Structure formats: structure tokens, C-alpha cells
Simulated scan of single mutants.
Amino acid sequence: MIEIEPVALDDELKRRLASIGTFDIVIFVSPNAVEHGMTLLKAVGARLPAGVIVAAVGRASARALASLGVVGVLFPAQRSNSEELLECDELTRVKGKRVVIFRAQDGRELLADTLRARGADVEYAGVYRRVASRVDALCVLSRWLDADCRVLVLTSGAAARVLLDRTPETLRQRLFGSPLAVFGERLRDTCREAGWRGPIGVCNAAGDDGLVDAMASLIRSHC
């Protein structure tokens, strides 16, 4: 439902990336933020400075950074979300610190708002954008709904919004009664508020293993 595209390296983004050495804390919100952020840093001749605190919202992002040689990354050990990351000691004492958050051009404001409330100076580096997939969603959904055993997986609020917006009324009732696996209670609540009636399995554990467990539980119970 969602495709990831790189952004143009405009003057403002170029300036922010080139000044990476002035930040005390660098946060990556997703593997996409790692991939596109590190690529753009290289494009402007910049690199993460020694001694900077590098943080990631989840284990997958930390692994992506490790694959690029960035070690000692701060990330939540249990749930992969902003709320858990904000509980880390290094992010509770940020008064007077400069923080840059690598993310999509849009996204949640929780990290920035909370860190600013704690006294940090926070800037964004929007290094990719999310766009609706060019795939024929109606065709894909129709074929998926005809399967004998099916579990839908939604990994982000953006994907959920696209799905909810693009599902025609002719399929909505069937779709909203299907088993659904999501990352976190917040996304589950979003789907419930939109009218999802089917069982929803929530993945709270970091990484893909938790998602697989949530899907397996739904299959055992409802397929």
C-alpha cells in the first residue's frame, strides 16, 4: 500500500546534513531513515561524528546502522516505538542538547515534542517520503479476500490510512472482518476507530519475530 521514495537534496536539507557534527544526539526512526539518511550524508561529504549519541526507534533500525559500521546504538530492548525510546536514560537528560531526527517528510511529532519539553533543541531531517503504491489495490485486495486463510499485516499508520482510504465500499465490509496483525496498540486503536471488526493481533516485541508470533496466533485462532 505504501512505497518509499528518496527526496530531493534541497539547500535546507543539505545544510542540515552538512552540520551533523553540531548535534549531540542523532535519532533514526526506521530502517528507511537509516538507508536514505546515511546515503544523503555521504552525498554531502558528511558522516556521523565520533562521540555523538546515535539512537534508533527499534532493533531493525539498529541492525541497519550496524550493517553500515555504526555501533553502540541506543534502542529500546522491548517494544520498538517512540514511547519506549523516550524512556532511555540518555533521552531523559537532554536540556541544552541539540538533537536531529532522521525520518520521513511527515510523521509522528511525539519524539520532537517530548524532547523539546525536556529542554532539547530539535530539528528534523526528512530524508524520504511515503507515497501511495501504484499497484492496483482493488485487484490485490479482491484476490487476497478470496484466499482460504488470510491475515493482513499493517506496519505503520501511513499504510493503514492508505488502506482505509482506498478500499471501496464493495470490499470494506469483508475486509474489516478479516484477521489483522499490527505493530503496537496505537495502530490497533486507529483501526478499531475506523471500524475494523475482525480480530487484531498486536505485536509489541521488537523485530520481525514478534510480528510472526502475532500472525501465527491469529492463524491458529481464526483460520
Rank of each mutant, 00 (worst) to 15 (best):
L41I: 14
K42E: 15
A43I: 01
A43G: 03
A43Q: 12
V44T: 05
V44S: 07
G45E: 02
R47D: 14
L48M: 09
P49C: 08
P49Q: 09
G51W: 04
G51Y: 05
V52S: 03
V52M: 08
I53V: 15
I53H: 06
V54I: 14
A55C: 13
G58F: 12
G58M: 12
R59D: 11
R59Q: 15
R59A: 13
A60H: 13
S61C: 12
S61W: 10
A62I: 11
R63C: 04
A64T: 07
L65K: 09
L65Q: 09
A66K: 13
A66G: 11
S67K: 14
S67G: 07
L68N: 06
G69A: 08
G69L: 03
G69H: 02
V70L: 03
V70G: 02
V71C: 07
V71L: 12
G72R: 02
V73L: 01
V73K: 05
L74N: 00
F75S: 06
F75N: 00
F75M: 01
P76A: 04
P76M: 01
A77T: 10
A77C: 03
A77K: 13
Q78M: 09
R79G: 04
R79W: 02
R79Q: 12
S80Y: 10
N81W: 01
S82V: 03
E83Q: 11
L85F: 07
L91F: 00
T92P: 00
R93K: 12
R93Y: 10
R93L: 08
R93V: 11
V94E: 02
V94M: 01
V94I: 07
K95Q: 10
G96Q: 03
K97T: 00
R98M: 01
R98H: 07
V99A: 07
V100D: 01
I101D: 04
F102H: 04
F102C: 05
R103D: 03
A104N: 06
A104P: 05
Q105W: 02
Q105I: 15
Q105S: 05
D106S: 14
D106Q: 13
D106G: 10
D106M: 11
G107S: 10
R108K: 08
E109G: 07
L110K: 06
L110W: 00
L110V: 13
L110H: 05
L111A: 08
L111Q: 03
A112N: 05
D113C: 07
L115S: 09
A117Y: 03
A117Q: 15
A117F: 04
A117K: 15
R118S: 05
G119N: 05
G119F: 02
A120S: 04
A120Y: 08
D121N: 12
V122W: 06
V122Q: 08
G126K: 08
V127I: 07
V127K: 04
R130H: 04
A132Y: 00
A132C: 08
S133C: 03
R134V: 06
V135R: 09
A137C: 04
L138M: 05
C139M: 12
C139Q: 13
V140W: 13
L141T: 01
L141A: 01
S142Q: 15
S142E: 14
S142P: 03
S142T: 15
W144Q: 14
W144V: 09
W144G: 05
W144D: 14
L145D: 09
D146K: 15
